[in-house]
Design a protein around this nucleic acid. Sequence first.
RNA 1: GCCCCCAUAGUCUAGCGGCCCAGGACGUCACCCUUUCAAGGUGAAGAUCGCGGGUUCGAAUCCCGCUGGGGGUACCA
Length: 517
Amino acid sequence: MSFAVPDPSPIRVRFAPSPTGLLHIGGVRTVLFNWLLANGQAPREGKPGAFILRIEDTDRNRFVPGAEEGILGVLRWFGVDWDEGPDVGGPHAPYRQSERTALYQAHAQALLAAGHAYRCFCTPERLQRVREEQQARKEPPGYDRFCRDLSPEQITTNLAAGLPFVIRFRMPLEGETAVHDLLRGEMLFQNENLEDLVLLKTDGYPTYHLANVVDDHEMEISHILRGAEWIPSAPLHLRLYDAFGWRAPLLAHMPLILAPGGGKLSKRHGSTSMEEFRSQGYLPEALMNYLALLGWSLDGTTEIFSKQDLLDKFTLERVSPSPGTFDYVKLRWTNQYYINHILELDDLTLRVMPFLAQAGLILPGPYDADHADFTRVRSATALLKDRLETLADAPELMSYFLAPELEPYDPALLIPKKMTRDDTLAALEAIAGLLAEVDLEDEAATEARFRALADSLGLKPGNLFMPIRAAVTGRTQSPGLFETLRVIGQERVRARVKEAIASLRAWVPAEPAAASV
RNA sequence: GCCCCCAUAGUCUAGCGGCCCAGGACGUCACCCUUUCAAGGUGAAGAUCGCGGGUUCGAAUCCCGCUGGGGGUACCA
């Protein structure tokens, strides 16, 4: 008997950040697609999937202490996990390139021995000069292969003199290299345009190119999903695999993410790092949803995807090769949508609390249902979640619910359009009277009493409601008046109305713009 | 300069030869709801499918050229 045997060849993908700073949002999108391929598409196609995290810390000059921890932390927050990595280990440990230098050195030596590489003794100064001369002559800049064919005697002499050297790859001078990209098809490169790239630096550390190829092979990576900025080095890498006699992984270059005006996304346009979006109150779920749709779509119609939806639906084949512009406005909309329609109230309350604590409106954590302010925050959140675009909007929007005292406000806000100060004062006094006998917990009854009061005063309901709203919130915009009163509570409402009356009495209207002759 | 990639409304996209005088979403505008502001509902405007040639009975969809945008061009990744 026989079964339809699924292709058991595992899909092993990796994300390989260098610890030089914060995690760029473009990198996060690449992480997401890698993660979805390994954890969603692969199992659906009957293949084992694995997502590997590897730290590419071979540039000692740009290394930033703590950056690795930051990157791992923000990825966990984002909601992805990895099967192998510097913190969890795995069959191909270590996962930090600075701890694997012997491996790269051995491979560079092997290439040297096989004649696929050579020692280059050129100084940075000479390289610099060559480049300048080439530019002056309007020639394409690039290494002039000065050391490619040094005589054995010359090399011996240089080595004996202790001259520092790098190891360069001996690139074929003619022919062409075809790069097959899963999203773009075949891309052809003329070998004469490929550089003799540096594999091993003077300091003994490998360059990205060497370390990357060696590790992807050693770690049995099956698919490389990386940013499109790597397309030009793909033929270089393929030549390297070839020289080693290895089969190269499949390649898929993710479309670039551009800034609103065009060009690279940079600080000038807004936030660019995951850490910033986090501290600005974006939800990981919303970020994931937005990022997934930047370069990928299921059907062009579905807009909201949970993490599970993405695992169920993502396919690499539907990633578009064309670059996209990062739209901060749509990200805000997505975030707002999750806050208002997706998150459970308790969950949202918990997420908003750290931002409130940071603003000094509530006590610091731990944040759970036992927190002293949980219930109050929950009530306020229920009323305001429909106008929260980010969690960071919460302190400003909720202050009048949570702070005992109102921020100072202009008493003019108390006066509705087409009403005078004296009318308003009279209205507020009537309101104060009514507040003494009304139960704010009963919204419907309260509303009925206030409507009746408006009627007896000959006021449109809106003109009675606005002075209370302003008195109680210090502003002219708020959720529904009666739910707002209920949440603020009997005692504070009465006090604030009393204060409003006092401040309006003391208030001197600004000189009206002289109704000139 | 040279090499390479990309090209549907302001933006993200659906479309993979006829179902498209192009569908969805954000944004914009209008109306509805309404005690304010949101949210929500309904609707509208907005795309000569970058341009020019082909191929085909038929092209947004295939081919070529051009233009535009972007990326690369380090002992950085």
